[in-house]
């Protein structure tokens, strides 16, 4: 895999190096921060960036005070959203039957597993996964407890139920966050269909919690699929940063990388994995555990 792909935008010339190495900030002038902060805010990465920079005290001390203010604002905003997720999960716990297996996806899962990548990350909503056979039970339990579907038209609702991998978003009146109830990690219509049997066979309990998480490799595959199949294109740099964090967290040896490529094949997501790793490599300089020739053939 080539690691020399051109940077996406001239404006990203400071943001990407900062995401690779916080110490890069030491060489930045006030003017360099101008568009960097705006881009980071737009990509919903201000909190993560702030957290990483603050964790590196000598670097933080060299950042202009005005810039520190913006980063601190991002950190505070992220902490608030993380707290909202914890509160929503606590309420959901009361509503869901205790014998029902419920798996957290993405932000909520990163948060409860206390992964380093969750620090400063601003979650948007709460994503839950249940087996398709349990979907009605979960939906009824939430509706009985007061959650309501935000979707207005019967047409939209039918679309979600027949063609999507989740129900229309649910919200408890007055709560700021939506809850997405999934039965799979890929839409029914998608060319890439994750193997649900594989997925559900490898669920892991989250310590001190009633919830579960996907297996580490499936968390990576899910992030990969989400990166290329989500309908919104605005948060994709953040998706890449999530993926980067997961790879660093869960892969430690060449065997782990092999296992990942195998797993991707099992979920029919080899091509997506190849693309995702390509950009992780080119933009965030993740070091792949495979020799370049090998990884280049993964998708073939």
């Amino acid at each position: 895999m080539r690691g020399t792909a051109a940077l996406p935008l001239p404006a990203g010339r400071h943001l990407l190096p900062l995401l690779r190495d916080p110490a890069y900030a030491r060489g930045m002038r006030l003017a360099d921060w101008d568009e960097t902060l705006r881009l980071a805010r737009h990509a919903r990465l201000l909190g993560q960036l702030g957290y990483r920079l603050q964790a590196d005290q000598p670097t933080w001390d060299q950042i202009p005070e005005r810039v520190q203010g913006h980063l601190q604002a991002g950190i505070n905003d992220a902490a608030y959203h993380a707290q909202l997720v914890r509160m929503e999960l606590r309420d959901l716990e009361q509503a869901l039957p205790s014998d029902l297996s419920v798996t957290l996806l993405k932000g909520a899962a990163y948060l409860l597993q206390d992964l380093p990548l969750a620090r400063g990350r601003t979650p948007n909503d709460v994503d839950l996964l249940v087996r398709r056979a349990d979907l009605d039970t979960a939906e009824q339990a939430l509706k009985c407890a007061g959650w309501r579907m935000a979707v207005q038209s019967a047409y939209d609702e039918r679309y979600y139920r027949e063609w999507s991998h989740e129900l229309p978003p649910l919200r408890y009146p007055g709560h700021p966050l939506e809850v997405d109830l999934h039965h799979s990690i890929t839409p029914v219509t998608s060319r890439t269909r994750a193997d649900d049997a594989l997925l559900f066979a490898d669920l892991r309990p989250i310590p001190n919690s009633r919830y579960r998480a996907l297996g580490p490799l499936d968390q990576i595959i899910h992030a990969v699929i989400h990166l290329f199949q989500d309908s919104e294109l605005t948060n994709e740099l953040r998706g890449l940063v999530d993926l980067d964090g997961l790879l660093r967290q869960f892969l430690h040896s060449e065997q782990d990388w092999h296992a990942l490529t195998e797993r991707a094949r099992g979920h029919h997501a080899s091509r997506l994995l190849w693309y995702a790793l390509h950009y992780c490599c080119a933009w965030l300089r993740i070091r792949l555990g495979l020799p370049p020739q090998r990884s280049a053939t993964v998708a073939r």
Binding site: Q68, G69, H70, Q72, D77
Partner: peptide, 12 residues
């Protein structure tokens, strides 16, 4: 300006 400031200045 009031809107932008109230949205973003969460360091205060």
């Amino acid at each position: 300006i009031n809107w932008s400031f109230a949205q973003r200045a969460n360091q205060y």
